[in-house]
Design a protein around this nucleic acid. Sequence first.
DNA 1: ATCGGTTTTCGTACTATGTACGAAATGGGC
DNA 2: GCCCATTTCGTACATAGTACGAAAACCGAT
Lengths: 227, 227
Amino acid sequence: MSAESARSTTRGRARLSRERVLSSALILADESGIGSLTIRSLADAMGTRPMSIYHYVANKDEILDSLVDLVFSEIDLPSDVGGWRSGMYRRAHSVRAVLRRHTWAIGLLESRTSPGGATLRHHEATLGVLRRAGFSVKLTSHAYALLDSYIYGFALQEAALPLNGSEPVAQVAEPMVQQFSDGRYPYLYEIATERVLQPGYNFGDEFDIGLKVILDSLEGWISHRPG
Amino acid sequence: MSAESARSTTRGRARLSRERVLSSALILADESGIGSLTIRSLADAMGTRPMSIYHYVANKDEILDSLVDLVFSEIDLPSDVGGWRSGMYRRAHSVRAVLRRHTWAIGLLESRTSPGGATLRHHEATLGVLRRAGFSVKLTSHAYALLDSYIYGFALQEAALPLNGSEPVAQVAEPMVQQFSDGRYPYLYEIATERVLQPGYNFGDEFDIGLKVILDSLEGWISHRPG
DNA sequence: ATCGGTTTTCGTACTATGTACGAAATGGGC
DNA sequence: GCCCATTTCGTACATAGTACGAAAACCGAT
């Protein structure tokens, strides 16, 4: 065969690499869920054998660590252009979009305590925008904790919504609301029927509302000094 | 032996029950991490055999679902006394305290989409406080999404802190900060040295600051009408 | 082309896990 | 003491992660 990539081997398959292992793992997790990401299924997906993977990663846990970092690398690094508020707004949306694509990453976050390179770069860029905008170190820590708590928490709630998938909300929620109608959960029933099940309601729309509240508050921090 | 509990059997062990299975599972998860919660280890902890457990639960996934609900049941139900703000403040702290005791529950949340009874009761009570305080249905949904996003997200960040355990923060973070000092992460270095590593700094203290911001904003929603 | 060392791939096998499928043990009313 | 429902559990299988070392592929020097 003529100009075959240097990264191929005598057999048909492209040569393995750490990057290929990780990107295949990411795709597999997205497609079948993190629970279906096994060394064997990963090997299958790559057309290789389980033990070959271990030449590129120490163990599965290292794959999971790296996946989280890979997910972070998909988040657009915030910049100063347009002002800090615009930068933080766009970053928030980027984080949420990424975590929606890879919801399993949220669950992974809880157990992974050593940030990877992309994660560090991401934090560095975000801190930079805040500091250069005039937030003191102290206010920056307050602002960052507040923003990220909100963003991660929102993503977590979205992931845990009783209705995930593209079915109309009403269909999936119907039986659940049935349970409410016996009067045991009047407020849940109310908010379900009068709001969540109304045509056009989309939990995702709540994101901007809360985000605005937070950004508005931060705005006040720059001129005045509550920290 | 004389007055032995009715819930015991000829052999020494207390009789099994769904409750005992679940509370043992909770303890085991707290003590050894959710990863060490296996049917066999659970059976060991209860002095029984693996397959006996399956008389009380359908499968392990049902245990995990129930554990999440059990965790929710530990959260103090909010009440109206002292006003909605006080109720929401105390609820927020109760949720955080519970999730700190059972950090593994945060990771579980992402994958569990059918709320249990305690979870429903908790939501019901919280919605009630907000509605009775005068928040419209719409504003209540905004407020609840905002509050819970913040609380869960904060708990998630706490769980993912590179430093967990009682060691002095500085000790654990030293090598990490070393990595920053080469100038690649100036802002991370700055915030680490000037803030996070300062004696007395405690990430948990950030909780009240963000919570106050949110509650202050909600306060404005009752009199005026941004929803 | 050949050879020798390096890198990469992978076969085998062991341990841990969830749990299906009955069988055995237990308990409680008659 | 007997019978049936409940509870406990032994055995066994499929699926995981991965240790260990052998085989294969690769590559530069001759």
